[in-house]
């Protein structure tokens, strides 16, 4: 079962998570501990990286118009910053006493905090990226919602001309996202729904054409309308399912059923 829900987050955090876990285990096994080497330099490197992340993080917040991101990111940045202070304190304490147990605790707490803060930050950023994809999906839903007003061939031409680019964009973005996910079940759900939308698109166009012709000849209008509306509903349901799955970040047992 994957812990991180995207390959990017996994590739960034998994190596550090493994190292932090090892340190925690070693610390528990050797409570009194060996003398710690001077960690001043590696801690300074971490501090510089933290300062850069905080700078880039606040720049991202300032440039974004995503209110949820603006709300979610600062606590994660504070967590990382506070944790780096713990590391600096640990470094000072270890220089004075390389056997200091409280310093080791601070070292573990600081490393763990950086891992958790960076994880929260990446999650907030990732959720914001997902919201962008969802906006594209909703754009397609908006076009599907106005299908009923298409009752002339000229309207159909305009409709297809407008719908095609948003549909292509949605397909491309969902497809890229699907490849990013670590949960196989979520990936399969996205692939299935996207495939359905792709297959239903020509059926929809043809359904609208049949409806327009039926209206012009005044024959079978009700059936044509019912058929068209069914396809619209089916496509909309699949897009709603895509939106739902895009928002899943944790493993859900029931998804296997």
């Amino acid at each position: 079962m994957p812990v991180f829900h995207t390959k990017t987050i996994e590739s960034i955090l998994e190596p550090v998570a493994v190292q932090v876990s090892k340190l925690v285990i070693l610390h528990e096994e050797a409570e009194d501990g060996n003398a710690m080497p001077d960690l001043c330099r590696p801690i300074q490197v971490v501090k510089l990286a933290v300062d850069n992340l905080v700078k880039v993080g606040y720049e991202t917040i300032n440039f974004s118009d995503d209110q949820i991101l603006k709300q979610d990111m600062p606590p994660a940045l504070r967590r990382v910053e506070e944790s780096s202070i713990l590391l600096l304190q640990a470094s000072d304490m270890l220089r004075a006493d390389p056997y200091s147990a409280p310093a080791r605790k601070k070292l573990i707490e600081g490393s763990r905090g950086i891992l958790q803060g960076t994880s929260a930050l990446l999650l907030a950023f990732d959720e914001s990226e997902v919201r962008k994809i969802i906006r594209v999906c909703k754009n397609v839903l908006e076009y599907l919602a106005i299908t009923e007003v298409v009752d002339r061939m000229e309207d159909l031409v305009t409709y297809v001309k407008n719908l095609s680019p948003v549909l292509t964009r949605m397909t491309k973005e969902v497809d890229t996202r699907e490849k990013e996910l670590t949960h196989q079940v979520h990936r399969e759900m996205l692939i299935r729904s996207l495939e359905q939308v792709k297959n239903l698109t020509p059926v929809l166009i043809s359904g609208i054409k049949i409806y327009i012709t039926a209206k012009q000849t005044n024959q079978g209008v009700q059936d044509a309308q019912t058929n068209r509306d069914y396809v619209v509903r089916k496509m909309s349901d699949e897009i709603h399912e895509i939106i739902r799955v895009l928002q899943l970040t944790t493993y859900d047992e029931e998804e296997w059923d």
Partner: peptide, 29 residues
């Protein structure tokens, strides 16, 4: 993109730090 790069740097620096600390601890275990 910048945020991912910055996060990568932190993760790498923290992993290196923790590895150094673990190495010292491991000698005792």
């Amino acid at each position: 993109e910048q945020i991912l790069e910055a996060a990568k740097s932190i993760a790498a620096a923290t992993a290196a730090l923790v590895k150094s600390a673990s190495a010292a601890q491991r000698e005792l275990v």
